[in-house]
């Protein structure tokens, strides 16, 4: 019988959910922040053989110098197996060595396309956006060439939109059959979306977002209420188990003791 925690933050729930979705011995392209915490948690629990790769060049490190603040941080190289640069890391994604990539964005649409470039009218106001976001970084590349991607987005009405203002990272495009393949892409696209409200997947036929599980305390209705498009609901929708006391202990005491990314 698992001993579940009763006191945990939304960030800790996301990290736990991300970690539990990861299969052992897979190669994971890690972004800054919560994904890094999730990968480390998975390594300490269900996935001791998980191999992190950082886009700035480090392959297979063990993060024993503390959580990196950047994917180019020297800490990402700790006990690494191989270190080169960005070209080398993205060549790995193209070659098929990267099983899963974690990506995020400011906006997401029903097909898992993401915007991390700009808020405003595109293309008319590309040079004068209402809000300029940092840009793709490696997310656009990961969305194309990692075998699968897992998307982590804050679950808010203004972020879950039917139509993006700009498409930075490519999901299932317009949802049409073989859309990604026809575009020239190799990776299979988004597999899961993890938020503070739900774990979602994509319908096999329509490629639209589908609720697989609700996070503790949430319902299908409460998730739909903060989503700007109609979500499909899986026939076997279930309530996701909260973090265990052990998972919370690992996050707080071992992985992120100074709360760089995982606020309590």
């Amino acid at each position: 019988m698992t001993d579940y925690a009763t006191d945990y933050s939304p960030g800790e729930m996301i990290v736990t959910a991300g970690a539990r979705q990861l299969e052992n011995n897979k190669v994971i392209f890690a972004g800054t922040g919560l994904p890094m915490v999730g990968i480390t948690l998975a390594q300490l629990t269900n996935g001791p053989g998980i191999i992190p790769v950082f886009e700035a060049g480090a392959v297979g490190p063990t993060l024993d110098r503390g959580l990196p603040l950047s994917v180019g941080d020297s800490r990402t190289t700790s006990r690494a197996n191989f270190i080169q640069g960005l070209n080398s890391a993205f060549e790995l994604t193209q070659r098929g060595f990267i099983d899963i990539g974690f990506i995020g964005g400011a906006e997401i649409d029903p097909y898992g396309n993401l915007n991390s470039t700009m808020i405003g009218n595109f293309p008319e106001n590309y040079m004068k956006p209402v809000v300029r976001l940092p840009g793709s970084g490696g997310a656009g590349d990961m969305s194309c060439s990692c075998t699968y991607t897992i998307l982590i987005v804050q679950h808010e009405l203004r972020r879950f939109v039917e139509k993006l203002q700009y498409c930075t990272s490519i999901g299932h495009m317009d949802g049409s059959k073989d859309a990604r393949k026809k575009a020239g892409l190799q990776g299979k696209g988004p597999k899961w979306v993890i938020t503070t409200k739900a774990l979602m997947g994509f319908d096999d036929e329509t490629k639209r977002m589908k609720i697989l599980a609700t996070m503790p305390g949430e319902t299908v209705e409460s998730v739909q209420a903060v989503t700007g498009f109609d979500l499909m609901v899986d026939a076997d929708v279930y309530e996701f188990a909260p973090p265990s006391k052990e998972e919370i202990r690992l996050i707080r005491d071992v992985i992120d003791p100074t709360q760089i990314f995982c606020k309590r």
């Binding site: 595109f122 969305s143 930075t168 020239g184 892409l185």
Partner: peptide
């Protein structure tokens, strides 16, 4: 030639060509 950027908006606002 690279296998990124196909089908999104980034390729529409730079000098790349598909």
């Amino acid at each position: 030639p690279i296998r990124s950027g196909l089908g999104g908006d980034i390729e529409k606002c730079n000098r790349s060509q598909t």
